[in-house]
Design a protein around this nucleic acid. Structure first.
Length: 592
RNA sequence: CGGGGUGUAGCUUAGCCUGGUAGAGCGCCUGGUUUGGGACCAGGAGGUCGUAGGUUCGAAUCCUAUCGCCCCGACCA
C-alpha cells in the first residue's frame, strides 16, 4: 500500500492552456505526465504505474503469441539504415545522435541515429545468428522507447517525439509460416486490447513506407482520432480510408461502346473540373477524366480518375515506387505538351509519351464510358473519349478515395465513416528486409532461402491516452481495472485520528490480500478536495472512512464508474472489500 | 514545411486597440476560524511581461527580427 502524503500526485484544478482534448487535459490534471517540450513528456509516478501495467499485459500476450523478448540499442549506426530499403524515406523522421561535447572532435557526418523502429537492427542480428530452418520460426519483441522527429507532435502522448512502443519482428521459413505468425500476433493484439479494457478494432490498412503485402491497424474509435475508418457493422468490413475500397464498379461491367469520333473543342480559360461543369460546356464532373501527373522515383507517370473522384495518394504505393510526389507545372509541360488544366491520356496526344513510366487508371473511369478530357493543348479539350478505345492505359487499379455511402465490397450495404486513434499496426513484410540484409537460411534439402518477415507495433504510451479518451467523464478518468494505477483508494477523512488510520490499513491489507493495489489518502485536506481528486485520478474502487460513517458503524464503498454508494457495516467491511476486489478482478479477466 | 493563433508569477489569466513603469483567481508560506464534494479571514513571498533590436522623454502596450508553444493540412505507433 502507498500513502498519498508520501507519494507524488500533483493534480490540477485547471486544465493547462496548451491541452485541447479531454485525454490530454486529464493526463496533466490527474498528475500522470508533465511536458518538457513539444512531444516530450515526463511520466510522473502515477502515469508510470499505468504504463507499467499496460506494458506487463502487453508482454504476457505477445509472449503467448510466440514472442521472445529482447532489447536492442536505441542508438543505431547510420550504416544499418543506409543498407536498409527505406533510408531515403525514413531519414526525415530520424534524430541524429551527434556528440554534444565541446566540439573538439570536429564536425562530422551523423554516424548514429536514434531508433524510430528496429527492422534495420533485428534483421542483421537474425542474419548473423540464424541460418538453419531448424531455428525458424522466431518472433522477437521489445518494449522500449522510440524516437521520431515528428513534424507536428500533437495532443500530448498521441503523437510524441519520444514514445514507448512494443515492436515485434517475426522470421519464418516461408509464406505460410509468415501468415501463421501474422495471425498469431493479430490474436495476441486482440487479447491485449481486450485485457486493458480498450475497445480496439482491427481494420485493413495501407502498408505505407514499411512495405509488405498486407497489414491491419488497430483503431480505438474516437472523435479526435487522426484516421478515418471506413466500415460496415453488418458485414464486418473495416478499413483505413487510405486502403478502403468499395463495390462502386460492378464486377461484370462491360466496356461502353464508343458513341462517336473523338472531337476537339475550344475551352479558353477553363482549367478546372468545375469550369467544365459550368455553362457553356455543361459536362458533369462524373463524365470528365481527371489526369494527374506524378513522379515516381523521379520519373513521370499519369493517374487518371473520374472528375468527381479524389486521388487517394497512399494507394499509389501499390505501384512500387520508393518516393512518389506530384509533378510541378514546370515538370509537366515538357512531357504533356500543356499546362495542368488541359491534360489528358488520349493515345497520340501526349507530347513525350515515351518519357512516361506508366498511365494508371482508376477502374471507376470505366463507369464514364465516353467522356471529356484535356487535349494536352492549352485551351482545348476532347469529347467522345471512349475508355477502351482511346485511353492509353497501362494498368487499371484502385486509386480513388472511397466516400461514405458507397457500397461495401463485402455486402453491398452503404459504407460508414468514423474517426479512430491508431494504437497498433501489424504488417506482413515479406522478404524486403531479408533481401537487403541477406537474411537467409538453409532448408532440409540444403537449399538457401530468404526468410519471410512480419513486423508488429503497439504504441504503449499512446494506448494509455487512448484508454483515457475512451474512458472518462466530466469529473475525471475512469480507469479500467487492469490498467488502473491503483485499484482501491481509501479516503481517510480524519487522518489525524489513529483509529481511522488503523482501520484504513486493515482494509488495505484485506484488499491487498485479494490482489489489489491500494492507496490511502491520508492527506490533511478537506473531504471535498479528496473526493474531487479521487474522481480525477479515477481509481476504480473508493472506500471512505469518516467520523460520520464510523458513528453509524459503517464504511462507504463506491465504484468510480457508478453513482451509488453502499454503506458497509464495520463487522463485514474487510470481507466485503476482499470480495469486491475479487469480483472486479474476475470480471476483468472474464472480459479478456 | 504551408496556413492560423499565442507567449504576462508554479497554474489559469486581466491589462495591449488608445504608451505613463503590472493586477486578479488558484497554488505556496505564517496565524486563526473551519471540516462529508475543490472552505473562510488576516498577513506574506513570488513577475528581466519569451528573447534581441528599434521608435519614444517614457514600451507588457507601437515597429522589426528571432525563438518557443498550440491548432488546421501533408506523415506516423
Amino acid at each position: 500500500m502507498k500513502l498519498w502524503s508520501q507519494y507524488f500526485i500533483p493534480t490540477l484544478k485547471e486544465s493547462p492552456a496548451d491541452a485541447e482534448i479531454a485525454s490530454h487535459k486529464l493526463l496533466v490534471r490527474a498528475g500522470l505526465v508533465r511536458k518538457l517540450g513539444g512531444g516530450l513528456y515526463t511520466y510522473l509516478p502515477l502515469g508510470l504505474r499505468v504504463m507499467q501495467k499496460i506494458t506487463q499485459i502487453c508482454r504476457e500476450e505477445i509472449e503467448r503469441g510466440g514472442g521472445i523478448e529482447l532489447e536492442m540499442p536505441h542508438i543505431h549506426p547510420v550504416e544499418n539504415w543506409q543498407q536498409g530499403p527505406r533510408w531515403a524515406a525514413a531519414r526525415e523522421i530520424m534524430f541524429r545522435a551527434d556528440s554534444a561535447g565541446d566540439g573538439k572532435r570536429g564536425p562530422r557526418e551523423p554516424e548514429y541515429v536514434l531508433g524510430p523502429t528496429h527492422e534495420e537492427v533485428i534483421t542483421p542480428l537474425v542474419k548473423q545468428e540464424i541460418s538453419s530452418y531448424r531455428d525458424l520460426p522466431k518472433n522477437f519483441f521489445q518494449i522500449a522507447t522510440k524516437f521520431r522527429n515528428e513534424i507536428r507532435p500533437r495532443f500530448g502522448l498521441m503523437r510524441a517525439r519520444e514514445f514507448v512502443m512494443m515492436d515485434a519482428y517475426s522470421f519464418d521459413a516461408n509464406d505460410d509460416g509468415a501468415i501463421k505468425s501474422y495471425l498469431a500476433m493479430k490474436a495476441a493484439y486482440e487479447a491485449f486490447f481486450r485485457r486493458i479494457g480498450a475497445h480496439a478494432i482491427a481494420v485493413e490498412a495501407d502498408t505505407g513506407v514499411m512495405g509488405g503485402s498486407f497489414s491491419h491497424e488497430f483503431m480505438v474509435p474516437a472523435e479526435i482520432g487522426d484516421d478515418d475508418v471506413i466500415y460496415n457493422e453488418e458485414s464486418g468490413y473495416a478499413a483505413n480510408r487510405e486502403k478502403a475500397t468499395s463495390a462502386l464498379v460492378p464486377a461484370g461491367l462491360a466496356d461502353a461502346a464508343p458513341t462517336g469520333a473523338v472531337e476537339e473543342f475550344a475551352t479558353p480559360g477553363a482549367v478546372t473540373i468545375a469550369a467544365l461543369e459550368a455553362a457553356p460546356y455543361g459536362v458533369p464532373a462524373s463524365q470528365q477524366f481527371k489526369t494527374l501527373v506524378y513522379l515516381g522515383d523521379g520519373k513521370p507517370f499519369l493517374v487518371v480518375l473520374r472528375g468527381c473522384d479524389e486521388l487517394e495518394e497512399a494507394k499509389l504505393g501499390a505501384l512500387g515506387f520508393t518516393l512518389v510526389r506530384p509533378a510541378t507545372a514546370e515538370e509537366i509541360e515538357p512531357v504533356m505538351g500543356a499546362k495542368p488544366g488541359s491534360l489528358g491520356a488520349v493515345k497520340g496526344t501526349i507530347k513525350d509519351g515515351a518519357a512516361l513510366v506508366g498511365i494508371f487508371a482508376d477502374q471507376a473511369i470505366r463507369l464514364i464510358g465516353n467522356g471529356t478530357t484535356g487535349a494536352n493543348k492549352d485551351g482545348f479539350h476532347l469529347r467522345n473519349v471512349n475508355v477502351a478505345r482511346d485511353l492509353a492505359v497501362t494498368k487499371f487499379g484502385d486509386f480513388r478515395r472511397v466516400r461514405p455511402g458507397e457500397p461495401d465490397p463485402k455486402s453491398g450495404q452503404p459504407l460508414k465513416v468514423r474517426r479512430g486513434i491508431e494504437v497498433g499496426h501489424i504488417f506482413k513484410l515479406g522478404t524486403k528486409y531479408a533481401e537487403k540484409f541477406g537474411a537467409v537460411y538453409t532448408d532440409d534439402q540444403k537449399q538457401s532461402h530468404l526468410m519471410v518477415m512480419g513486423c508488429y507495433g503497439i504504441g504503449i504510451s499512446r494506448t494509455m491516452q487512448a484508454v483515457i479518451e475512451q474512458s472518462h467523464d466530466a469529473d475525471g478518468i475512469v480507469w479500467p481495472w487492469n490498467v488502473a494505477p491503483f485499484h482501491v483508494l481509501i479516503c481517510v477523512l480524519d487522518p489525524q485520528l489513529p483509529e481511522m488510520m488503523d482501520l484504513a490499513k486493515k482494509l488495505a491489507l484485506a484488499a491487498e490480500g485479494a490482489g489489489a493495489d491500494v492507496m490511502i489518502d491520508d492527506r490533511a485536506e478537506r473531504p471535498g478536495v479528496k473526493f474531487k481528486d479521487a474522481d480525477l485520478i479515477g481509481i476504480p474502487l473508493r472506500l471512505t472512512i469518516g467520523s460520520k460513517g464510523l458513528k453509524d458503524g459503517i464504511v462507504e464503498m463506491k465504484w468510480r464508474a457508478q453513482k451509488d454508494v453502499s454503506k458497509v457495516p464495520l463487522a463485514e467491511v474487510e470481507a466485503k472489500v476482499a470480495a469486491a476486489v475479487a469480483e472486479a478482478k474476475a470480471k476483468a479477466v472474464a472480459a479478456a
